[in-house]
Design a protein around this nucleic acid. Structure first.
Lengths: 206, 206
DNA sequence: CACCTATGATTACACCGTAAACATGAGGTT
DNA sequence: AACCTCATGTTTACGGTGTAATCATAGGTG
């Protein structure tokens, strides 16, 4: 299969288009990066963006939800990378790494709200998620959970990790939906700072 | 305008249909209560549910987003009522009232995920929200913020309220999107219990 | 009664997701 | 080299949606 000089990494599915599946995912990401909602992410619009016929995506995805899931999977991989990078920002295994992860989580959502909304409940019913999507989201969560595990005793680590996740996810959701003030929503840095502040905040005393 | 015996409260807009505007909002709510996503909430489908022509809603709403916003406004009013009722469940001004509000918040989202998703970023761009919708969401938040204000000194009350909101909102979002385990998503009681547990959880020590 | 306006119905158009039939070109076989 | 096969992409078609424009009617007002 390799007598020709074509790069084998592009040969897979590279009959007419170089690699249409990846091109479609990239087109979908570009739509979201241009300020598009998940509702703007249509099958025809994505195909148009990839410079291909409207029905071409059906050769690579069974339906629209599968294309959206593939885009969301890339989103989770990017989120995982962003969390891991933020975690490595500090030096030791201290809480600053966790705060940095929280700030990165919110900054990610604020910088790409369309992608973030697609990743979380952006259309596909739970239970019908492809395995790759589930694995990608679990991998992202694992980065946060691992940091929490280094900070708390083993028993309550799971609950503490879930609590931290819910907190930063709630901040991110409220910010991108414009429920916490316009200034924060516009500026990803301000949103990240808010996340760090709330994460550091002591619970209600009593 | 009131020589007839018709109830004035129904006279407004009640030429042909009793009160089509309210009927459309009720039809939209019923669609969401029947397990419909916000995407299932269409203009034509809502009109069909209300037993009226497809274009009739345009006499009462300028476009689809306005109808969705009206439905979301009712959702926030219901959420506000649920939070207020949960707050009154206990007796004193203690933290149990706050925990009850958190559990009620998550239970609301879990019981009506479609409505919850519509209320928060369900289509309309932030900034284009009708004033009534903003007021309804602010009124719901005010119930939670008021309880927090009775528990913490004035300076940090705002941040503490926002932190509590983000935490319960994050839990609710993750649960209805199926990111925290199927069992919790199915059972609203289990979801509410999870909210109470995480709210009670002490922060990460250090 | 005649009239006016609010309300709802019809029709039409562009867009979308999906299915079916068609066209094309790369690769292996002879 | 000639041919066959099948994966890939295109075209056409259908039902559904949101929206604009036009028509029809019900209810109160003079």
């Amino acid at each position: 299969m390799s007598t020709s000089t074509i790069d084998p990494s592009l040969t897979k599915g590279g009959y007419h288009h170089g690699d249409l599946r990846e091109a479609l995912v990239a087109a979908g990401l570009s739509i979201l990066e241009d300020g598009g909602d998940p509702t703007s992410l249509g099958l025809r619009e994505t195909a148009r963006r990839a410079g291909v016929s409207a029905m071409a995506p059906y050769r690579h995805f069974p339906d629209k939800d599968a294309l959206l899931a593939a885009v969301a999977t890339v989103g989770f991989e990017r989120l995982r990378a962003a969390l891991a990078a933020a975690d490595q920002g500090g030096e030791g295994a201290d809480r600053e790494a966790l705060y940095a992860q929280g700030a990165a989580y919110v900054a990610f959502a604020c910088a790409q709200p369309g992608l973030f909304r697609l990743m979380f409940g952006g259309g596909t019913r739970p239970g019908a998620r492809p395995q790759a999507l589930c694995e990608a989201s679990a991998a992202a969560y694992a980065v946060l959970a691992a940091r929490v595990a280094t900070l708390v005793p083993g028993a309550s680590a799971a609950d503490e990790a879930l609590r931290s996740w819910a907190l930063v996810h709630g901040i991110a959701s409220l910010v991108i939906d414009g429920l916490v003030g316009e200034a924060v929503r516009i500026d990803p840095q301000a949103a990240a700072a808010l996340a760090g502040r709330l994460l550091r905040l002591e619970p209600i005393p009593g």
